[in-house]
Design a protein around this nucleic acid. Structure first.
Lengths: 156, 156
DNA sequence: GCATAAGTGGACAGTCAACTCCACTTATGG
DNA sequence: CCATAAGTGGAGTTGACTGTCCACTTATGC
């Protein structure tokens, strides 16, 4: 569905959204919380910064924070930063002339893509945090405590 | 959404489904109709044959045909042959213990996947051919006539 | 203003999907 | 039974994505 970078980017954004508004988190803080290898995470964070999703601050006490309010950052926006938003089928993949719309085969596929894109475009990071669930995104506060024995169980 | 092989495999299956029941089409016939490079298509066809979607017949007059009725071949089945069915998220990608379900972030994504999988699992090749549309899958019969100048226009 | 914390940029290595080739096998038909 | 049509198997190439490293720049704070 989406590539590794996008998955990591989402985790980072969700984590940053849980922080008090003007607080920064360093790459290694985020890495711990999101379980993403630091070197790769740094690259991901840079990408999100260039895309205008995050703000970076250098130097001591620096780090990353959201560039706008969490309800102004859509999931799609983050996927796009990593070329990972599901691709709509714009025109016939066979490139045959004479038709102006997709045939049933490609319509079927494109419809599924369209559905997903629509949801991702209208869901913000805030929405994710606001979702009613006993499981918090990235396992939030409890995570640190239970972290001793990382098992492969179902989580979130 | 799906990889190239799966896209090619779907085209081939749809094309074969338009042929009279016991008729075979050679790889190069299918290549022409589906606009897929022959060498790669051959590999795709082999994969579908091994997966039990197609039957192959060697020697002169041989070729490929569907291994079962077109209404018994689902889109998902073909995607699966190429490891291209959208992957459900089974367990927390962060691998944190203590939770038994997905967190809101991963639920959101998994829901989109689930939707698509559900549709693909219940749509057969026959359904695609039966879809009401003035545009036929792979541009069917008219295609050969207009094929002289392949332009990049919208089709299906 | 120097030591140190922290982000930046870009180069580099591994893996996998996309795609190509070719030598081999099977079957038909004259 | 030989020439030829057609599928099979597997090796090889390229390029994108994943992931790592390091030298460099910026900012803080003592």
């Amino acid at each position: 569905m989406l590539n590794q970078s996008a998955e990591y980017g989402l985790r980072a954004a969700v984590h940053l959204a849980t922080l008090p508004d003007d607080e920064h988190a360093s790459a290694s803080d985020i890495s711990e919380r999101t379980k993403v290898p630091i070197p790769y995470l740094q690259k991901v964070l840079r990408t999100l910064t260039r895309a205008g999703v995050l703000k970076a601050r250098r130097g001591m006490g620096g780090g990353f924070s959201l560039a706008k309010a969490s309800n102004e950052i859509t999931v799609l926006e983050i996927l796009d930063a990593f070329d990972s938003s599901p691709q709509r089928i714009e025109k016939c993949p066979l490139g045959i002339s004479g038709h102006t719309r997709l045939c049933p085969l490609h319509s079927l596929i494109d419809e599924q893509v369209a559905n997903a894109v629509q949801i991702f475009a209208t869901t913000t990071i805030r929405d994710i945090l606001d979702t009613q669930s006993d499981i918090k995104p990235l396992c939030e506060s409890q995570a640190r405590v239970t972290l001793g024995l990382p098992t492969d169980k179902q989580t979130g």
